[in-house]
């Protein structure tokens, strides 16, 4: 009987020790620092299109390395709100730019980070982007990303980016 009790206590001790070890080890925690993003700047403008981009930093503030397996933008401009432009958006890593919309899985070591470049292309439905931008409302953009750390993968969203009309007009004005 005593032996069984000793065995039980030892097993309990082992379980608690492993649990404490895992809890202390923690996991990756990847965060997009939306408040630290750069303003949208004009990359290209034609008669009917305008392309803007901004950099959004991210960091792994957890206690383990993490992987961003996938990341993409989700722009939110329903036609009920405004149908003057067609929107295409994408993101890419700042150190590995690519224009195919593919996000290559990226390891984010503890305490480090980089930035993604969010690119938004607006095409005027009536062929005149300058006129269309004057009417355009603020537009929300979500960064949706899939994280893999020590625990099973999950998909989450960064705090919403708001691409403000004033910001767009300033950027277009910057072109002169």
């Amino acid at each position: 009987m005593d032996f069984l009790i000793v065995l039980l206590v030892a097993a309990l001790f082992l379980v608690v020790a492993i649990w404490l070890y895992i809890a202390h080890q923690g996991d990756a925690e990847i965060a997009f620092l939306v408040n630290e993003r750069t303003p949208f700047t004009l990359v290209e403008k034609t008669q009917d299109t305008a392309v803007f981009s901004a950099q959004v930093p991210f960091i792994n503030k957890g206690t383990q390395d993490g992987i961003i397996m996938d990341a993409y933008t989700r722009h939110l401009l329903p036609r009920e709100q405004y149908d003057g432009v067609a929107v295409v958006s994408r993101l890419e890593l700042d150190n590995a730019p690519r224009d195919d919309g593919y996000f290559e899985a990226y390891i984010v070591p503890i305490g480090t980070g980089r930035a993604v470049i969010v690119t938004v292309k607006l095409t005027a439905q009536n062929g005149d982007i300058t006129a269309a931008l004057k009417e355009m409302p603020d537009m929300g953009i979500d960064i949706v990303y899939q994280v893999l750390g020590r625990t099973p993968w999950y998909i989450t969203k960064a705090p919403r980016i708001v691409m403000k009309q004033a910001e767009i007009l300033t950027a277009v004005g910057d072109l002169g």
Partner: peptide, 11 residues
């Protein structure tokens, strides 16, 4: 593991 191979097998 994931990232160990080039796209499209990086995932």
């Amino acid at each position: 593991d994931v990232t160990g191979t080039m796209p499209p097998f990086d995932k």
